[in-house]
Amino acid sequence: SEFQINEQVLASWSDSRFYPAKVTAVNKDGTYTVKFYDGVVQTVKHIHVKA
């Protein structure tokens, strides 16, 4: 599913667990740039983002 900029989502971290994050960019290659609550910004594949 498509997510929008500033949408609150759950994004997987390197430990494969999902954490609350905010979408900061929707990228043309189908990835999302997300910002976790601790301030870390990461680009993740769409399969690693869920509502």
Rank of each mutant, 00 (worst) to 15 (best):
Y37C: 14
S1L: 11
V44W: 03
V23Q: 00
Q8W: 15
V49H: 06
Q42H: 13
K45I: 10
F18T: 00
N6H: 10
V34Y: 02
D15Y: 05
H48Q: 14
S16V: 07
V49L: 12
E2I: 13
W13E: 03
K50Y: 11
D29G: 05
V23R: 00
D29T: 00
A21C: 07
N27V: 00
V44K: 04
T33D: 11
A51C: 10
A21W: 03
S12R: 15
F3M: 03
V40I: 12
V26M: 06
T43D: 11
T43Y: 04
E7C: 06
Y19P: 01
V23E: 01
K50F: 09
F3W: 09
Y19Q: 08
F18H: 05
H46Q: 09
T33S: 06
S12A: 14
V23C: 01
N6S: 05
Q8S: 13
A11H: 03
T24K: 05
K28R: 10
P20G: 04
G30W: 05
Q4W: 06
S14F: 09
V49E: 03
T31W: 07
D29Y: 01
G39C: 07
T33H: 00
S12D: 04
I47M: 09
G39T: 02
G39W: 05
T24C: 12
K22A: 08
Y32R: 00
D29A: 00
T43R: 08
G30F: 06
V26N: 07
R17C: 15
V44P: 01
K45Y: 11
D38R: 03
A51L: 12
D15E: 10
V49M: 12
K50M: 14
F36A: 00
L10C: 15
Y37I: 10
F3C: 05
I47D: 15
R17F: 13
A51T: 08
P20R: 06
S16Y: 08
V44G: 03
F18P: 05
P20I: 03
K28T: 10
Y37P: 07
R17Q: 11
S12L: 15
V23W: 00
V41C: 07
H46W: 12
V26D: 05
K35L: 14
H48N: 14
D15T: 03
H46V: 12
V41W: 05
V40A: 13
H46P: 14
N6Q: 07
A51Q: 12
V34N: 00
Q42C: 15
V9D: 02
V26S: 04
V23L: 07
T43S: 07
I47L: 11
D15C: 09
K45A: 13
T24M: 15
A25N: 09
V9W: 04
Q42E: 06
T24L: 15
A11E: 03
H46R: 15
I47N: 13
Y37Q: 11
K45T: 11
A25I: 07
H46Y: 10
H46C: 13
F18C: 09
W13H: 08
E2V: 11
E7S: 08
E7V: 08
L10D: 04
Y37H: 12
A11G: 02
K35G: 04
Q4A: 08
K28W: 09
T43M: 08
A51W: 07
K50C: 12
Q4F: 07
V9R: 00
V34L: 07
T43G: 02
Q8E: 13
A11W: 03
Y32I: 11
T24F: 06
I5A: 05
N6L: 06
E2D: 10
T24A: 04
H48E: 10
F3V: 05
A11Y: 03
T24R: 00
K22P: 01
D38S: 12
I47S: 13
Y32N: 00
T43W: 03
E2Q: 12
N27T: 04
D29W: 04
A25T: 07
V41F: 09
Y37L: 08
A51S: 13
T24Q: 09
K50G: 06
K50Q: 11
S16P: 05
A11V: 13
T24G: 01
T31Q: 02
L10Y: 14
F36N: 00
F18E: 04
F36D: 00
A25K: 09
V9L: 01
Q8D: 14
Y32M: 04
V9I: 08
G30L: 04
I5P: 05
D29S: 01
R17P: 13
I5E: 06
I47Q: 12
I47K: 09
W13S: 11
G39E: 03
I5Y: 06
V34A: 00
F3P: 04
A51P: 12
Q8A: 12
V40H: 13
K35P: 00
H46F: 11
R17E: 15
R17D: 13
H48D: 13
H48S: 06
I47W: 11
Q42N: 06
V34H: 00
N27D: 02
S12P: 08
S16A: 08
S16M: 11
H46L: 10
Q4K: 12
D29M: 03
Q42V: 15
G39D: 04
K45G: 09
N27W: 06
V23G: 01
Y19I: 09
N27I: 02
S14D: 13
N6W: 09
W13R: 15
K45S: 14
V9S: 01
V34F: 03
S1E: 10
D15I: 04
K45P: 11
K35V: 12
P20Y: 08
E2H: 14
K45E: 10
P20W: 05
S16L: 09
N6D: 12
F36R: 08
V34D: 00
V26P: 00
K35Y: 09
V49K: 14
Y19D: 02
K22V: 15
S14M: 14
V41P: 04
S12Q: 15
K45N: 11
A11S: 03
V44H: 02
F3R: 00
F3G: 03
T43L: 08
H48W: 11
E2W: 09
V26E: 01
F18N: 02
D38C: 15
V34P: 00
W13Y: 15
A25L: 06
Q8G: 08
R17M: 14
T33E: 10
T31M: 02
Y37R: 09
G39Y: 02
R17S: 11
R17K: 14
K50A: 09
K28V: 10
S12C: 14
Y37E: 14
K35S: 08
S16C: 14
E7Q: 15
F36V: 00
I5S: 02
S14V: 10
V26G: 01
R17N: 14
N27P: 01
F18Y: 12
L10R: 00
T24H: 05
E7R: 02
N27Y: 02
T33N: 08
V41N: 06
D29C: 03
L10W: 14
D15S: 07
F36H: 00
T43F: 07
S16E: 14
A51H: 14
A25D: 05
V40L: 12
A51G: 10
V40Y: 09
H48F: 12
Y32Q: 01
A51E: 09
A51F: 08
P20M: 06
A21Y: 04
F36C: 06
F18V: 05
A21M: 04
A21Q: 00
E2M: 15
S1R: 14
V34I: 08
I47T: 15
Y19G: 04
Q4S: 11
N27Q: 05
S12T: 11
K35F: 07
I5K: 04
